[in-house]
């Protein structure tokens, strides 16, 4: 990547067992992992599980991390997405046996009832999207990845990403059409 990897130095310190570096990496990446998994899964508790599992992989991978192949953040997003999809697959398998129960992680209570309601509506609309469209929206809008990086995480071209985003956002607009009036 042209600008180098902003996580490279921190990851190499983690690999050497530097406890301050481990704390810094957790402070830097944990909110991003919770944001990603929370939006993909629509469930805060499961998002925490995914974040923990992703860090287990980070701790294992850090000593073997080779700079210059992919950005660390790109790799981490791919790992976290795979963990999310494992969970979504398990949910689908379980839903054959019992009715789906999807606890909804809305915004914090301090945001007020209206915002909480809107948050739940957006979460539901996002969960209703096909997986790849949801992934595209989450990576580009919530994770604020650049288009090239988001396409790399998804293993597709920027044009294909644009198509997924366009369809996803059109569906979201339709689902949330009444929000602007409220």
């Amino acid at each position: 990547m042209d600008k180098g990897d902003p996580d490279e130095e921190l990851v190499s310190r983690v690999a050497r067992g530097d406890p301050a570096a481990a704390r810094s990496l957790v402070a830097r990446k944990l909110p991003r992992l919770l944001s990603l998994a929370g939006r993909i899964l629509g469930d805060g508790a499961e998002a925490e599980d995914v974040a923990q599992e992703a860090f287990v992989r980070i701790w294992k991978q850090a000593p073997r991390w080779t700079p210059g192949t992919a950005r660390f953040d790109t790799w981490l997003h791919r790992v976290a997405l795979n963990l999310c999809y494992d969970r979504l697959r398990r949910r689908r398998e379980l839903s054959y046996a019992e009715p789906p129960e999807r606890p909804d992680e809305g915004p914090g209570p301090d945001r007020g009832l209206l915002a909480a309601d809107t948050g739940r509506r957006v979460s539901a609309a996002l969960q209703a999207l096909p997986e790849r469209q949801r992934e595209a929206v989450v990576l580009c809008h919530y994770q604020e990845l650049g288009n090239i990086e988001a396409a790399a995480v998804m293993g597709i071209s920027v044009e294909a990403l644009e198509s997924l985003l366009g369809r996803g956002r059109r569906a979201l607009r339709t689902a949330l059409i009444d929000l602007k009036e409220t």
């Binding site: 690999a15 915002a115 929000l179």
Partner: peptide, 28 residues
Amino acid sequence: LDAALDVFAAPRASGALAERIVAGAPKP
């Protein structure tokens, strides 16, 4: 639409979760 999407807040990281994760980090 961007503004509507932003209302869906991410789960917040608790201190306890961060501590559990840090405890598993590679040792010196």
